[in-house]
Amino acid sequence: MRDLVQNVYQAKDTDSILNLLDQYQDEAKIVAGGTDLIIQMREGNVSPPVLIDISSILEIREIKEEKNTIELGSTATFTDIEKHVFFNHSLSAIAKAARSIGSPQIRNRATVGGNICNASPAADMLPPLLAMDAMVVLKSKQQTRVLPLSEFITGKEETLLKSNELLEKIRFQKLNPNEGLGFSKLGVRNALAIARLSLAVYVEWDENDMCQNVRIASGALGIKAQREWDVERFMKGKCLNNSLFAEVAAFLEESTMKRLAGRSTMNFKRYAVQGVFKQALDEALEDMERRMIYEKGSF
């Protein structure tokens, strides 16, 4: 690995990142927190000739709350997210996901953009962002593209990021009072947990307890963090009661068995997924209730 890195740059603003990427293309690798990349470099899995550090650029670290949307700068750290007022008060499932990652040392460095671009199947931030139907804003010197996060992540550690592109920010809609988000994760250890299984559930419920809309995303339940479209289709338009819950749990068990067939974790995860789902769903419903109470109170 020695001698292989020839040039390093500590970028000072977004334009200078884009210029460097344009100049070096495939040769360059972006490093933000470095918590994944430095390990990969030492293991000899990647050996970029050029490194561009973007961790000191404040303009892409900002968490911006607009009237209807939230914009998460790609170099916002998990500590930034975990401590942010909006996530603590209005979307606690995301703060919870951030808090569940690594240790304080890791959370101080690891960024949401890194979590997305490395696209580990077990990346903790992906399920809640997928369940929020988040969009990624990708910038190159020539153009800006906006893609759904679910399309951006194509496989295990694979994304649609081009070699001259920077993931600038992540954007999603704020929730209405009849919507809620929940996140639940099963980790091996609390301090340094790498998710072994996580689920995020977004729900929109009407006053007759009918599920108007639902988005479910999983981590470590396949080759990538992903939306569970089949389960969503199954739930939509149904009434929430214990029998629906039992049906969904059975559905999840079956699809987990199919997807993980032949893997040693299958027998554990087919049961675990049901409990994790229940927790995430309960949390989403609590979240929705909180939001309704808050809304009423503010009239």
Partner: peptide, 26 residues
């Protein structure tokens, strides 16, 4: 050497970080 143990912890601008997971130029 891989961010698990915290023995290499230092403060960077007041925040605790694992110095094994920061490149010097950063």
């Amino acid at each position: 050497g891989e961010g698990e143990c915290g023995a290499c912890s230092v403060l960077m601008d007041g925040e605790v970080v694992n110095s094994c997971l920061v490149l010097a130029f950063q």
